[in-house]
Design a protein around this nucleic acid. Structure first.
Lengths: 211, 211
DNA sequence: AGCTGAGTTAAACGTTCGTTTGAATCGAAC
DNA sequence: GTTCGATTCAAACGAACGTTTAACTCAGCT
């Protein structure tokens, strides 16, 4: 087996530590120690700690938004008007993938996303791949067709709710004190619970106008 | 008007800065500078930065859980078996209160709660008032009666979903680039959207057992 | 006037941080 | 064998951090 080079060793260590302790709670020294690399390797390979975070974030989010995009493509190839349940599954499902079995990397990447998205450090919000916006807008349009009569702002609110439920659940799974490693069935159960929870929520009739 | 003493001036400044930049992103010097107090005042009045965070968290969360508890009391005094919609309103409503009008303090406290709850720093999770557990368990029991046939674990998942939706929505409202101050109608709209979204989600039929 | 104790102050403590430096090391090309 | 670019290394840089110290202020009391 080819041993990984320093660059990916640093990426792996940073992914783990950023997920556990956040951006500000992780020192470059802790990353290079865990990676078995020299302190200056971060500066050499990535330029700065903030650019290292951007590289970690891109590596983690790329397969997820790719799966979301592919899922929507499949759906639209089968029918021009997918149901709310199908859209929820295609959108929220990839956020749960990579999780199951003893492998803890799935839970870690989920937690990493949440940690990055909720990190108050401005460095944690500046990486912005261009693709996740377009896939979000495509789903927005599909949901708008599946939910006629729903005001655009309320639809936006509900789509944020999807991200909220999936993200916070993953954090909770990761944080639970006992049984640190969720079993495969637990991960699959959470996925199914989230789908039913969110499908019902998205399918709710529009809120009547105020007053 | 009585000018506030140093202790509350520090509490106010810390609440604002913790909400904006998180625990690790806020220095004691920044707090005392904003409060117009001396650097050593934090150590004198609170002991340490971590204990200051605990004091801020308690001051913010106490009225919210008090309102949640009072709302449940009112509900149970009226009927022994409240509906899911009533329970959602009583539980999630106080998380939206204090928000409206040009006053930005409501949005700030909401963001503070989210920032603290999601902060990876261990100091941010150690304050734990004893009351919020009991009120959570009381709502759990009430929801269990209103939703017979729902497995306890799935019910727990759904209650976490309530917190997730309300919390993340508030962050998004606070973070929006344009129109930094949400108007009263926007705050009230978000509250009503959340109630319908969450009522539908909580009322979903139980997920069928896996396989 | 003199003492007391809570509160404030400037200054410094030791530590950790992200980053930079310049030399050492290595395999491949010539 | 020598040169070269890429990589790794130990060491140090200055800045910022949380905390502590000891002197100082000042109202309230005897």
């Amino acid at each position: 087996m080819a041993l990984p080079d320093t660059r990916t060793k640093i990426l792996d260590a940073a992914e783990r530590l950023f997920a556990e302790h956040g951006y500000r709670g992780t020192s470059v020294r802790a990353i290079t120690d865990l990676a078995g690399a020299n302190l200056a390797a971060v500066g050499y390979h990535f330029g700065s700690k903030a650019e290292l975070l951007a590289a970690v974030a891109r590596r983690v989010t790329e397969p997820i938004i790719a799966a979301q995009s592919a899922g929507l493509d499949e759906l639209l190839a089968r029918t021009p008007d997918p149901s709310v349940a199908e859209l929820v599954e295609a959108f929220a499902g990839p956020l749960f993938d990579g999780m199951p079995a003893g492998d803890e990397s799935g839970a870690r990447t989920s937690r990493l996303i949440v940690t990055i998205l909720s990190d108050p450090a401005e460095e944690a919000r500046s990486w912005t791949g261009p693709d996740e916006d377009t896939v979000g807008e495509r789903y927005l349009a599909a949901f708008a067709r599946a939910l006629p009569g729903l005001a655009p702002q309320e639809l936006l609110f509900r789509m944020r709710g999807i991200l909220a439920v999936t993200a916070v659940d993953r954090v909770e799974v990761y944080n639970r004190p006992s049984a640190a490693c969720p079993t495969a069935t637990e991960g699959e159960e959470a996925r199914r619970w989230a789908i039913t929870f969110l499908t019902a929520a998205m399918s709710a009739p529009p809120t009547r106008a105020w007053r």
